[in-house]
Design a protein around this nucleic acid. Structure first.
Lengths: 201, 201
DNA sequence: GTAGACATGTAACCAGTTACATGATTTC
DNA sequence: GAAATCATGTAACTGGTTACATGTCTAC
């Protein structure tokens, strides 16, 4: 999951860990946020697997502001330390490799073994533009089927528990059911839009 | 989390592990389901902590159907094995203890350190009837505040990323925002109902 | 000279999962 | 006697978390 998010961001732009964390918390922020304790090990794993590699600095889209004139030695030192603009300890800027691109595609297409859960779907949706159209529709359909099943289960378990449910649980079940129904019709819109695209182009 | 769910169910009725799993998947089913691999260790932990204890069989609400007449020795054997009605290996039926009741109250009142996440709120709501009214309102208010904050974060991160967002991400963000808004007004209803109760009674 | 942002990393822990091992009993 | 269901349990793994350790550079 985290791997997918990292690769997806690196696909767009080379970044170092610290910045990556900020982006993760921003783009996918409301949904999930990662801590350094998981981010850095994940980067190292990806590097070991050859999916990303450290590149020379000067990667970010932001222009490097001049900090002023520096003595030659200090400038050399700084360059060696890969410190581009300001702040801190040596950065390690990562870029995605060919293998990484392939891994990304794989992860994105994978039928999440760990349960087609909410977070993973949301994450995949955020990178859906990188999928071929059929795969995209497949993703949506699978998600839809999953939600429909969830709805069915909820209904049967309500029937099973009926009287046993107190008002709080009942309210919860009702609200969840409505939410799931809304999710399904949202997906229907996405799917419809997708098919439209498909026939239009 | 799992501990809370187990204690909550045992509060209502003595159950053995297998049955407990079915109930967990049923009452709280759509939201989460547990595997034996986590259930049994959890039961053992709770037993070690003195929160639950194994009781003599014949606990379930269901009447024990007669299986027919049995030879005396076999009957004795069965009784020893705590096999009440049918099927399988010896059951261990658990009941909640005084300590367990206290632990349950604690867990239910605790401000989930691990992030006021969705699942934990839903679970607590399912047992909200066991909370004193003020604590109940507190739970709702905290959840509401959490959602409001999430909404605010989402809005600022949209402002930050604006043009960068493709149509899928944009749709996701919009849909999530709407869902969160609906969640908040649902909570408002719950809170209002609670205050009503409070003044009525 | 110190507070605070930038930056990377490790270690211990946590709450669960899957896969496996075991075994009794019922039903066909 | 094979398959299904009931029933309990362990071991290895997963995907994170928090807390800690370390260090640089900027701005006041």
């Amino acid at each position: 999951m985290l791997e997918l998010a990292i690769l997806g961001l690196l696909k767009e732009q080379e970044l170092h860990g610290y910045e990556l964390k900020k982006r993760l918390g921003e783009t996918l922020g409301p949904l999930s946020s990662v801590s350094f304790g998981s981010l850095y090990p994940a980067l190292n794993r990806l590097e070991a697997a050859g999916a990303v590699k450290a590149v020379e600095a000067n990667a970010g889209g932001a222009p490097v502001p001049m900090t002023g004139s520096l003595g030659g030695e200090l400038a050399a030192f700084r360059a060696r330390r890969a410190t581009t603009s300001r702040g801190g300890r040596a950065r390690k800027v990562y870029g995605i490799t060919e293998r990484g691109e392939r891994l990304f595609d794989e992860l994105l297409a994978a039928e999440s073994q760990g349960g087609e859960d909410d977070r993973s779907f949301n994450l995949k949706l955020a990178f859906a533009r990188h999928l071929p159209p059929e795969a995209r529709i497949g993703l949506f359909e699978r998600r839809r089927a999953h939600l429909v099943e969830r709805l069915a289960q909820a209904r049967t378990s309500v029937r099973a528990g009926r009287e046993r449910l107190d008002s709080y649980t009942r309210s919860l079940v009702e609200h969840s059911t409505e939410t799931t129904e809304r999710d399904i019709s949202w997906l229907d819109q996405l799917i419809a839009a997708e098919r439209q695209e498909d026939t239009t182009s």
